[in-house]
Design a protein around this nucleic acid. Structure first.
Lengths: 357, 357
DNA sequence: GTTCTTACGGACAACGTTGCACGCACTGTG
DNA sequence: CACAGTGCGTGCAACGTTGTCCGTAAGAAC
């Protein structure tokens, strides 16, 4: 009576190294060698072991591996999935990891630094080999401490770091591209909608970088920056537009810091009886899915989430392999002109304000 | 010379049970007891251990735990994050797990059954305690086999199963609600856009259930179902609408199987010079974010992703606790009437077709 | 004062890997 | 023909937990 490892009532147990070894008639160390691709294995043995693995459908136990070093798991924290950019970054990561032994797992950190920190710790508890954090909200100092413990890449935070790598789109330049576009059309009063910076300077999030880029570009053109601070949401954009359009001396263009806010601006324009782009030019940033469709056709700035994800992955794998010098990768944004931007109608010209219905 | 476990060059090691035990001056078994809440622990010891845990910032090693049973990790597979519904389900899961010892991890399975299967296997390799699969595409048989191995809840697949639980919105009823709404407005020629079923009957995905519901409701009203098969995308909706609007005898309403397709229908209507809702009623299904905003204001059907996620979690935890009888939970959808649906203009009445510009 | 019970704390054997140390046949060399 | 070198396979000690088993001491009952 040798002790059996399963009873009649048990579910079929997952095959282990030992099972494969018995099947192939070799020691379990030998099987381990084959799997790890270590040296000291004859071709015949490799073949027999491979056949046994195949036959039993053996798959390594990540938990057991994690106890001896690597889990072959990459932890990715995103803030919210409903953002259009972040899923695209994830797609880039997934594609980049295809064919490597690593697998990414995601965790949605939510809209507070405390919760995001807890999510990251949950990933660390699960012995991920490295972290990619997409637009995390916490202080740079906390991230530095984290980076000292585990290979980390931070996406979409501007500024240089010591203990981790960063990948950002050049949002300063993206905002400049848009301002240049609007100025080249003849606009001079261009309002920008932003949101509170969150006090993370100098390691700022996207919206602050966009704001700075806007301010610099306006100043360079000899124009006066005008900023309305609300939130990046449809309602936020609506409120900002209502505020900007309230006085007598209206701007001819509103450059929303995010497409989603630009949608709110469009609604406000409609309610004010302003034709877009005849009476008001509207622009956004992000190139979200709906911006492209016919009924919206929003002029915006595109940043490739795919590229961002791919480069983050590359940097992280380098760090896991041992690089300790920080790396910072910047991706160039692209202007996407569509149908919500045009030359302004001359001020005071009749018909520039038309109320419908 | 006792052997030290860190060298000068090492990163600070993560605290283990043993470290906590030394700190508190007790055996590591005792610490384990405290953590597990096992009996046979004096209040004083509990206190000392708790203090030591606090001081060292000890956190259990999930990999080590997984080797002895549970990993306290729930694996969630979603097909694509850019869908509006699936992130909401995830949010529901996250909220439901708050306060439990479990943590969910996500994996984006992608748009092919093969890749989805690989993703699920990657989660199994990581010893998750249970699985929630959101709208998986593979055959029911494969899922039955999976459910025999690990507690599993499948979201958004209609039909009953033996080895796993399901949570679905009643999309048959949702489609019926919409047809009833349109009929009550006076519509008789209502075209439905769908996509190929994928041959998963009888365990069908959402779009097939919506189609069946539409067909049943139309028949019950004594009307003839008319279906155009394309894809659930803006382009797909556009193509379907172009096809439906091509003949002389136009429908008065198009009920797209998904909001995203309805956006394409709106674009096609605009290009055909049709006013919505005066000349054409358009409806969708899903209640995605953009459907609510002013410029779109799409009549649609809402299914609560939040509730879906919460109930999936509840069922999964029950299964992990030992339930083996399958459970199937159905959530009621809600009609959301907005501004793209109205009574049809009488057929042949002048002005029912107006070309702009 | 003896025995029985109970409460508490510690020892220890898994769990499935990795990777090093070891041993045993063969080689080729002097 | 002895002997080092090499290629190949095995043995084994971790890794950080869980949960069972066991020993001891204090308190209760007689």
């Amino acid at each position: 009576m040798t002790p059996t490892r399963t009873t009649a009532t048990d579910k079929p147990r997952r095959a282990t190294l030992q099972d494969v070894a018995s099947e192939a008639g070799v020691s379990f160390s030998a099987v381990s060698k084959v799997i790890r691709g270590a040296s000291g294995v004859s071709p015949q043995m490799r073949e027999r072991v491979t056949a046994a693995i195949e036959k039993l459908g053996y798959r390594p136990h990540a938990g057991a591996r994690a106890m001896r070093g690597k889990s072959y798991t990459i932890g990715v924290m995103i803030v919210e999935m409903s953002s259009p950019f972040q899923p695209e970054v994830v797609q880039g990561i997934t594609d980049a990891l295809e064919g490597t032994p690593y697998q990414e797992v995601l965790i949605a950190g939510g809209l507070s630094p405390a919760r995001q920190k807890r999510s990251i710790e949950a990933l660390m508890d699960r012995q991920v080999d490295g972290l990619i954090l997409v637009a995390p909200w916490m202080e740079a100092e906390w991230l530095e401490e984290l980076g000292a413990k585990i290979p980390t890449v931070v996406v979409a935070r501007h500024g240089t770091a010591i203990n981790f790598d960063t990948v950002v789109d050049d949002e300063y330049q993206g905002a400049r591209l848009m301002v240049d576009h609007l100025v080249s059309l003849g606009h001079e009063r261009i309002v920008h909608t932003s949101m509170p910076s969150g006090g993370l300077e100098p390691f700022v999030l996207s919206h602050t970088a966009r704001r700075y880029g806007y301010e610099q570009a306006m100043t360079r053109h000899g124009l006066v920056p005008e900023i309305v601070e609300t939130t990046y949401s449809e309602i936020g954009g609506y409120d900002a537009a209502v505020q900007a359009l309230s006085g007598n001396d209206r701007p001819t263009a509103i450059f929303a810091g995010a497409d989603i806010a630009a949608l709110g601006v469009l609604r406000a324009a409609e309610e004010h009886g302003l034709q877009v782009p005849e009476d008001l030019t509207v622009a956004g940033y992000d190139n979200i899915y709906v911006s492209a469709i016919g009924r919206i056709s929003l002029t915006t700035v595109d940043q490739s989430g795919q590229l961002t994800g791919a480069n983050s992955t590359r940097l992280l794998l380098e760090r896991i392999e041992g690089r300790t010098q920080p790396a910072h990768y910047v991706i160039a944004p692209q202007l996407v002109p569509r149908h919500t931007s045009a030359a302004p109608v001359h001020v005071g010209q009749p018909g520039s304000v038309s109320v419908q219905h």
